[in-house]
């Protein structure tokens, strides 16, 4: 393992423990920043929901709850796999780590594909708030303006997460990145954030108006 530690150690650190601490500290700060990015959008949602309660409730009934719920389950499971993968990497369990990361990639891709089908269905049902928008309630256009913006931004974050996890898995599989590298835990923290954002979006976009 000492060769492994040496390979994972980077400038300007003297110890891997300290380096890992810094990487996790750094990513927590970054997650705080990301949280505020989505907080800005959630604030916009909250304000408009207060201004147009009826329109938002009516719109919430129009989103596809099946796609939404299945995707929530997919994403939660992927977070579990990510947690297993990152801990397995830290423990040096190569096979388990790589399998778990592969599961993450698979589930993440599943989410995006399902999301794509859902968007296609939304477009068919004329839920794009442009010309020919189907709903007439005041505020419905705003709901769907935010729906498209927030789900798109979330999907972008997920795609970014997929790229990072894919890259790390490839490096881990090829052996160019030692499993002791803090990058696995960093990627896991980011993945969980993307998950948490979805957990906030799900009730706002799919459950509102359905109670």
């Amino acid at each position: 393992m000492s060769g492994d530690v040496a390979a994972a150690l980077r400038e300007p650190w003297d110890s891997l423990r300290r380096q890992r601490e810094a990487a996790e500290f750094g990513v927590w700060i970054f997650l705080g920043s990301e949280a505020l990015l989505f907080a800005g959008l959630l604030l916009a949602f909250a304000v408009n929901r207060t201004l147009h309660p009826a329109g938002f409730a009516a719109s919430g009934r129009e989103t596809d709850i099946v796609f939404g719920t299945v995707n929530t389950l997919v994403l939660l499971t992927s977070s579990l796999a990510m947690a297993v993968g990152s801990e397995a990497a830290r423990a040096g369990l190569r096979r388990l780590a790589l399998r778990a990361l592969a599961t993450v990639l698979l589930l993440g891709l599943t989410f995006l594909v399902l999301k794509g089908f859902e968007w296609a269905k939304d477009l068919r049902e004329q839920l794009w708030p442009g010309a020919g928008f189907r709903l007439a309630e005041p505020g419905a256009r705003l709901f769907f303006g935010l729906y498209w913006t927030m789900t798109a931004l979330h999907a972008l974050h997920l795609a970014g997460g997929l790229a990072v996890v894919g890259w790390l898995s490839w490096q881990g599989w090829r052996g160019t990145r030692p499993l002791g590298s803090p990058a696995f835990q960093v990627a896991a923290l980011y993945w969980h954030l993307v998950d948490v954002v979805w957990i906030l979006l799900y009730p706002l976009l799919y459950l509102g108006g359905r109670a």
Binding site: S33, L36, P129, G130, R141, T149
Partner: peptide, 24 residues
Amino acid sequence: VLATPVLAAALLLVVAERAFGLPI
């Protein structure tokens, strides 16, 4: 770290409204 992302959110909403016609 804590203020900049809110600007990004505001400007992304401007982009959404201007480029894609999404009303915000």
